[in-house]
Design a protein around this nucleic acid. Structure first.
Length: 169
DNA sequence: ACAAAGATCCGT
DNA sequence: CGGATCTTTGTA
């Protein structure tokens, strides 16, 4: 069992997104309880050219952390009620992030954020931190790729197969 | 200052 | 298929 270092997340998002499948997302809650969730579904968002990526709008207060070195957390509130968990990847000034879309027994990024009790205070937090980190137990599941979900507005970028899902067996 | 849309989920 | 619910962003 190994806790992934900050540097691990500095590889390109198209490498990191599938590499995170099978890894274990660990959350230590305020009451001291620790829970582990194996990652089953991720998506890659890459660069200002990617119309589906929030950084397509450039460097703003919200997207700032995506321009940092990989290893930080990017959270944002969507539809007024769901906190989406992303891991910033790549090098400085390469806006990228991996969206954690699902973990074992929990499908959907909104439900993941709810289960982990995320909020704005996680924005910019560096992995590993005292209350959230990712472990590797050398599980490398098989997976399939599909287009990303919920980005129909992204024109020619909407069909890229940048969603990675562990395949059942 | 205001309006519009959003990397979603749930109930009808 | 529509409502919930509020932040971010663009436009004036």
């Amino acid at each position: 069992m190994l806790i992934l270092s900050t540097e691990f997340f500095q590889q390109d998002v198209l490498q990191l997104a599938p590499a995170l499948l099978g890894k274990i997302l660990v959350r230590k809650f305020d009451d001291g309880t620790i829970e582990r969730f194996r990652i089953t579904e991720t998506e890659a968002y890459r660069g200002e050219e990617d119309k589906a990526c929030h950084a397509a709008k450039g460097r703003t207060q919200r997207t700032e952390v995506m321009y940092h070195q990989g290893g930080k957390i990017y959270v944002y509130l969507i539809y007024g009620m769901y906190w989406m968990l992303n891991i910033v990847s790549g090098k400085e000034n390469e806006p990228q992030a991996v969206l954690i879309r699902g973990v074992e027994k929990i499908s959907g990024p909104g439900r993941v954020g709810k289960k982990l009790i995320l909020d704005k205070s996680f924005y910019g937090e560096t992995l590993p931190s005292s209350r959230i980190w990712i472990e590797d137990d050398n599980t490398t599941p098989e997976y399939i790729t599909t287009p990303r979900i919920g980005i129909d507005y992204a024109e020619e970028w909407k069909d890229l197969e940048w969603r990675f899902v562990v395949s059942k067996r």
